[in-house]
């Protein structure tokens, strides 16, 4: 089977004049199979978000290749990149900030549909469907982001990400800013959606909470100072950590 996402030798070096170069991500490679959920864990500053920003092409990679669904998108721009975004969507860390304060949630959710040529009427219907699918009443389409709670907003963000039926969903700390009970609800929603879509939806789940990863992911990568120090099935990694940093990470929770 062809992987949905293939990352080879990906590297990001931040260089500023007068300062030493900083390698945020150091030659990492991984693959994501259709229907799989891959977790990436690591402490803050370990390069998780940099990896995500490079994969979504919000940040240029210094070196390496990103192949999405058989297509090399490492240097794609403009129309080609917009095409890639039909296959890849993201849920951000801070739900309220990820919606334009001057647009309604419905506008935000429907934006990708409108951009890909759907009519206003159809978009509205589809937005209502999406809201229901994510467990929100349809009248939320006309609400502004500041009028709903963080958990509700994150559900709307998931609805937005799923609007154009992507093959790859990236969750960048999507549950980190929510409180524990809401976190559970959002995870339950993601699991349910995965169940519905089968191999049609792969998830890249960025998190710093190893317990959540154990619960939700098929496979996990442990990132430390921009390098993958350990990978495997979450249960194995947690029960039998090989790397010094992974041991510390697990001890800190237990």
């Amino acid at each position: 089977m062809e992987p949905v996402l293939k990352v080879e030798d990906l590297t990001k070096v931040f260089s500023r004049s007068g300062q030493q170069d900083f390698t945020a991500v150091d030659h990492i490679s991984f693959e994501l199979m259709p229907g799989e959920c891959l977790g990436i864990i690591g402490e803050s500053g370990s390069g998780k978000t940099t990896v995500v920003n490079m994969v979504t092409r919000l940040l240029d990679a210094t070196q390496g290749r990103i192949v999405l669904d058989g297509e090399d998108i490492t240097h794609s721009k403009g129309a080609q990149l917009r095409k890639a975004y039909q296959k890849m969507q993201m849920v951000f860390q801070t739900p309220t900030d990820s919606f334009d304060p001057r647009c309604t949630l419905g506008d935000g959710i429907g934006e990708s549909l409108r951009n890909h040529g759907m009519s206003a009427g159809e978009t509205q219907k589809r937005v209502e469907q999406l809201l229901q699918m994510c467990g929100l009443p349809t009248e939320f389409a006309s609400r502004y982001p500041h009028q709903v709670s963080g958990g509700q907003c994150q559900r709307a963000a998931i609805a937005r990400a799923l609007a154009i039926q992507p093959k790859l969903l990236i969750c960048d700390e999507a549950t980190s800013s929510l409180d524990v009970t809401v976190q559970k609800e959002v995870l339950a929603l993601l699991s349910e959606l995965r169940g519905q879509q089968g191999t049609g939806l792969s998830i890249l789940f960025i998190c710093h909470d190893i317990a959540l990863v154990q619960e939700f992911c098929d496979r996990v990568l442990v990132l430390y100072h921009g390098d993958i120090v350990e990978q495997g099935i979450p249960d194995d990694v947690i029960q039998n950590p090989q790397n010094e940093y992974t041991k510390r990470l697990i001890n800190s929770i237990l």
Binding site: Q89, M90, F92
Partner: peptide, 13 residues
Amino acid sequence: TAYIKAAKLAGSG
């Protein structure tokens, strides 16, 4: 801001 990134991901020019 995150919403501009989200707009880019939505395929807006």
